[in-house]
Amino acid sequence: MSLATVGPSGGLTRDALDALLGVVCAEAGLDPSGAELIKFTNNAVFRLRAAPVVVRIAGSGAARARVDNVVRVARWLAGHDFPTVRLLTGVEQPLWLSGQAATLWEEVPDTGPRPGGADLAVLLRRLHTLPDQPPGLPEWRPMDEIRQRLAEPEDLADADRDFLLTTCAEVEDAMSRLCYELPPGVIHGDAFTGNLIPSPRGPVLCDFDSTAVGPREWDLTPVAVGRLRLDYPVDDHTPMAARYGADITRWPGFPVFRRLRELKLVTSVLPILRSHPTVRAQWQHRMTSFRAGDLTVRWQPYR
């Protein structure tokens, strides 16, 4: 398969991803042989075997729209010596190839102890107190990302799309009436323990797709929702709240932010529902319970 057969609007099947990886590696002077696909939701993430490098390919139009911001945030955090993943040097970043976008990163050895909620709280407090912000950092507009996903779904029924668009409007209206208690500023935007890598020298933060200027309450929401909704074996919310010094579930606006977070968790894989069919069953499970308003059903991570 050639890169020309991969449309910029989506359809990133495994064959298409392998073709893209080959072109990206050729451009960067790397060997893609034996690369391992370690994640594929909003982005496809490959770990190379021939070099300590991770290649991240944007998996949708929404992800491609954010890739320049990802690079700016990564460089800004590196300038503050913040414990994060680092962009690979010597390569122009991001790489744009026939409408597709990729970034390349130094591999972080995943050999430390599992990071928990307290570890994330430490990093968030440090992030929230940095003295400046990246150039051109956008304002937090979560509905823009969700609506973009809804504009490029694979195999989404009209009734489900209509419901999700109506939910966007309802949540957006509820958000307009919230009263925040924490000072606004730079937020990670998708702060949960899955975006921590347990390096030998301590946890490092990754995934800056959603980094923006917004309410700090949002950075405390994913772990709390994970405790309530996802079938995780460990409670990360309690130690995170204690270490950060704020329990988001006691904030009156939390039910609105919980619904927003769950809306994002339902819509995140819409652009790859057909090309990555292993996520379909879990997506349907989430969609059914979310549409029914059943807050007791537990969800599983996408595989």
Rank of each mutant, 00 (worst) to 15 (best):
L3P: 02
A4T: 12
A4M: 06
V6H: 05
S9T: 13
V23W: 05
D31L: 07
A35S: 15
L37I: 04
L37N: 10
I38S: 06
K39Y: 14
R47I: 09
R49D: 14
A51K: 07
P52N: 08
V55H: 00
V55K: 04
A58D: 08
A62C: 06
A65Q: 09
A65D: 13
R66F: 02
N69E: 15
L77P: 06
A78G: 10
A78I: 04
G79S: 03
H80V: 00
D81W: 09
F82N: 03
T84R: 09
L87V: 05
T89G: 15
G90N: 11
P94M: 10
L95P: 07
A102E: 05
A102H: 06
T103Q: 13
V108S: 05
D110L: 06
T111M: 06
T111Y: 00
P115V: 01
P115W: 07
D119S: 14
L120A: 06
L120N: 06
R126H: 14
R126S: 08
L127W: 02
T129D: 15
Q133F: 06
P138L: 10
E139L: 14
P142L: 08
I146Y: 00
R147C: 13
Q148W: 01
L150S: 04
D155W: 00
L156Y: 03
A157D: 12
D160S: 03
D160Q: 04
R161A: 09
D162H: 14
T167A: 13
E170K: 01
E170Y: 00
A174T: 02
M175V: 11
S176V: 06
Y180N: 05
Y180L: 15
Y180S: 09
E181F: 04
I187F: 07
I187H: 09
D190G: 04
F192R: 14
I197T: 04
S199F: 05
R201P: 05
G202S: 09
V204G: 02
C206V: 15
D207N: 07
D207A: 00
D207P: 07
D209E: 15
S210H: 14
S210L: 13
V213C: 14
D219W: 00
L220G: 03
P222E: 09
V225W: 03
L228Y: 03
L230P: 01
P233M: 12
D235F: 06
H237D: 12
T238G: 14
A241R: 08
A246H: 14
I248E: 11
I248A: 07
I248G: 03
F257T: 11
L260P: 01
L260Q: 11
V266P: 02
L270F: 01
I272F: 02
R274P: 00
R274S: 11
S275I: 02
R280Q: 11
Q282F: 00
W283N: 02
W283T: 01
W283I: 00
H285A: 13
S289K: 04
A292M: 09
A292W: 11
T296A: 15
Q300E: 12
